[in-house]
């Protein structure tokens, strides 16, 4: 059956194409990481991550970008806590109080999927209008609010998926002991703890890397903010602004900041692997 061999050739051709695709994927990962590391490694110094911008910072004089690191940590820390406080009850409500085929749950999940897809620049623009409406100016608070809104869909989707998978029998067992739905919260939280951890890591990753949303709402500052109403720098924006400078020293600092950002994100990503071995759709 010689003619039957043609399907084997087809198989081989597509296998080769698949291998090429994999090479492209790995090649890109390697190329991106290598670019950042090789540029950043040369530029980075202890001074940069431990000092605030000094005088003449933006024409290449000394100083560091501690303001951006701390600013990012403030925003990420606060919005992660706020995000958790808001999303856990919503996830719990969707999964415990609502029935499996509930219309409300369907619409809610759709809404969160849609919110998840809304670009961060739109969040930024919207956050900006809200702030104008409330009479706020670009500030740490503004940044925290917008980033919180940005990561809530990630929190909810990831935790929701983890909760949906966990066995209903455990809930039934607690009901059988006379617990109210509210009282099962503890059981549920313990069961989905890994899901919460994954969700948190993902949210932190997204929050720390996002530039478009905070551009409008958090502003930029050379100092570490001491009040919610002050403007603050963030790592991605610090990279972005310094990179547009014509002065090589300033651009080098951008690469150093990019390296710091990349390392943080990589650590988060590896930790995330640790909690789930699955390639969850919510990773993205």
């Amino acid at each position: 059956m010689a003619k039957n061999k043609s399907k084997q050739y087809e198989e081989v051709i597509f296998k080769i194409l698949m291998v090429i695709s994999m090479v492209i994927v790995f090649g890109v990962v390697f190329s991106v990481i290598w670019t950042i590391v090789s540029k950043g490694y040369k530029a980075i110094s202890w001074e940069m991550v431990s000092q605030l911008p000094g005088g003449g910072f933006y024409i290449g004089k000394e100083g560091g970008f501690l303001n951006a690191i701390v600013g990012s940590l403030y925003i990420v820390g606060a919005s992660t806590v706020l995000g958790l406080i808001i999303s856990i009850p919503v996830v719990f409500f969707l999964n415990v109080y609502l029935k499996k085929d509930s219309k409300l749950a369907y619409i809610a999940r759709l809404a969160f999927d849609v919110l998840f897809g809304v670009p961060s620049i739109v969040y930024g623009a919207f956050g900006f209008t809200i702030m104008v409406f409330l009479g706020l100016r670009a500030s740490l608070l503004g940044g925290i609010i917008v980033i919180t809104l940005l990561i809530i869909p990630i929190f909810i989707r990831t935790m929701d998926e983890a909760t949906r998978e966990f066995p209903r029998d455990i809930l039934d067992a607690t009901y059988a002991l006379g617990a109210t739905k509210w009282e099962t919260l503890k059981v549920v939280i313990r069961q989905i703890a890994p899901g919460i951890a994954t969700a948190t890591l993902l949210s932190i990753g997204r929050a720390i890397g996002d530039a478009a949303a905070v551009m409008f709402t958090a502003g930029y500052s050379d100092r570490i903010p001491t009040a919610l109403s002050q403007q603050t720098a963030t790592l991605p924006l610090s990279v972005f602004f310094q990179l547009s400078s014509p002065i090589p020293e300033v651009r080098n600092r951008a690469y150093a900041a990019a390296l710091v950002l990349t390392i943080i994100v990589l650590i988060l990503s590896i930790l995330g692997r640790f909690f789930t071995n699955r390639f969850s759709k919510n990773k993205l």
């Binding site: 670019t35 950042i36 890397g209 972005f240 994100v265 390639f279 990773k283 993205l284």
Partner: peptide, 22 residues
């Protein structure tokens, strides 16, 4: 492969911007 895709997904936009320019 999954960790590689994870990393691609996790890298911030500005990092891709640098990669693009360089």
């Amino acid at each position: 492969v999954f960790p590689a895709l994870d990393i691609l997904a996790a890298l911030p936009s500005v990092i891709y911007g640098i990669w693009g320019t360089l």
